[in-house]
Design a protein around this nucleic acid. Structure first.
Lengths: 183, 183
DNA sequence: AAGTTAAAGCAAATATTTCTGCGTTAGAGT
DNA sequence: ACTCTAACGCAGAAATATTTGCTTTAACTT
């Protein structure tokens, strides 16, 4: 057998334009109406794209939203590197908080949470990978799960259920110092 | 002006039966297929109820799921009362963890998260009220927000994105002791 | 026990979403 | 340039969901 004939994807040009248009449309609509009220025909119209294209690429609204939520923060942006793990974590947390203060980002996270099932999807997996990287680079630090439990989880909780409380003064600093307190 | 003629609601008997049937149907379906894939006709059929009744009572699937998610744990169950705040919090956290290990409860929380918007809904508000009660009763203890950030938030995060990790040994104890560590 | 009417049921009309087949456009490799 | 065909667009069909007007049932009040 030939080793996967690789059907030659065509991701550039027109396809890329469709993706970009759909992405913006989804973000707008999800922020305006909530992920549960966003339908594919609605997205297609706003994006100026044929609904069929959206159906064929994503299948249904939930998958589409989850997919777009996962890649919302650039996964290859540079991470803070001050030489001090604590400081790096604070800055990293601040970036995440700022990100999720955008209503569109928060709405996408809600959609991602809804789609997350029995391990088949997790739109925050990139954040976990980043935490792992920061800690490994420092050579020593709290377990990744502690960072998730006490820095990411509180942020996510607030994004989902108490978005206004993300604006609290020095939230990132408070969370990170609690992280180091119990060691 | 007449003081609200009180249209005399009829919540008993048949209405209560419909509510119970719909509640079970929603829990089953949401656990089986995820909140995004649950439709009102589907729920009505499983519940053996006319779709129109569901439309008229809840309007749409998202509201229905959010509404049922909010009252999933009995809000007036007795809270732990050992005389020791730390111990009470551990037991309380354990109850919550156990609760959300039921797939139906986890699925409802996902639905509630999706529906939670700009403060218009929060299916965890009862948990916050309980934390407040425990702390006030003890007369002294960490701020409620700390309990939310470092006990509830990690639990919720795990329910939503890493459900298998809820089974971890003494999760409740670990979270609560971290809560008291930074004081 | 009788009266009032909220809430449920039913059925038909309407609206929306989803699927399918086929022609068109244009991305990627030669 | 030219070829091949992935991905898009379009239109009509099919499937689903939602609304509406009316009838029936039965929960509360007196």
């Amino acid at each position: 057998m030939s080793a996967t004939p690789s059907p030659a994807r065509r991701t550039g040009g027109r396809s890329a334009a469709v993706l970009a248009a759909v992405r913006s449309a989804v973000e707008e609509l999800v922020a305006e109406r909530g992920s549960a009220q966003v339908t594919i025909p609605m997205v297609a119209e706003r994006a100026g794209v044929n609904p069929t294209s959206v159906y064929r690429r994503w299948g249904d609204a939930a998958s589409m939203i989850n997919d777009l939520a996962t890649y919302r923060i650039s996964p290859d942006r540079p991470l803070p590197d001050t030489g001090d793990l604590g400081e790096d974590l604070v800055r990293w947390a601040q970036e995440i908080i700022e990100h999720f203060r955008q209503p569109a980002a928060a709405a996408l996270l809600r959609g991602g949470a809804a789609a997350a099932g029995a391990g088949d999807s997790d739109c925050l997996r990139n954040r976990r990978a980043e935490a792992t990287l920061l800690i490994e680079r420092a050579g020593d630090g709290p377990p990744v799960d502690d960072v998730i439990d006490h820095v990411i989880a509180p942020i996510v909780y607030r994004v989902l259920f108490r978005p206004w409380s993300l604006a609290e003064d020095d939230l990132a600093g408070a969370l990170v110092s609690r992280l180091f307190a119990g060691r």
